[in-house]
């Protein structure tokens, strides 16, 4: 996909109005995964708006989002950054093909430090 198609696809998948962002940073201020991310929620929105999406696709950041939706809840512009992150992630996963997580795989991946929310998020992320 070329840059423009990629941007349009992400906007279509996420339903997010990235151009409404006023760069307040409330998404990144709210993000519990901030320290683990190379690109932070506000940068996801900014880079998608600019059409600079390959950087995001190549970054581990797409897997760090917990999908807690705090940013979606608090964004004063209704941009819904978590949906943007999810859309970028889905593009990458779909390109990779059939590497989906099955519910039966979860016990094998279990880590005692893993928050419960992360399991729910993992289901959301990998079973699509």
């Amino acid at each position: 996909m070329n840059k423009q198609d990629l941007k349009e696809e992400i906007v279509r998948m996420s339903g997010s109005a990235v151009e409404k962002c006023m760069r307040c940073g409330k998404c990144s201020a709210s993000c519990p995964s901030y320290e683990d991310m190379e690109y932070h929620p506000h940068e996801f929105v900014y880079l998608v708006e600019k059409g600079d999406i390959e950087k995001l696709m190549a970054s581990e950041s797409i897997y760090k989002c917990l999908t807690c939706f705090a940013c979606v809840e608090r964004c004063p512009r209704g941009v819904e950054p978590a949906k943007v992150v999810e859309a970028v992630r889905l593009i990458v996963i779909r390109e990779q093909g059939m590497n989906r997580l099955k519910p039966d795989d979860i016990p094998g991946l279990w880590d005692k430090d893993l928050p419960q929310q992360a399991i729910v998020t993992a289901m959301r992320k990998y079973t699509k």
Binding site: R23, C24, G25, S28, S30, C31, Y34, H42, A70
Partner: peptide, 26 residues
């Protein structure tokens, strides 16, 4: 940047979680 969350602590302080967009840090 913006403040994402404020959590009142037991010691009476307010834990302010915010983003500094110029430093790109939380």
């Amino acid at each position: 940047g913006a403040v994402g969350k404020i959590v009142p602590r037991a010691d009476g302080t307010l834990d302010v979680q915010a983003a500094d967009l110029i430093m790109d840090e939380q």
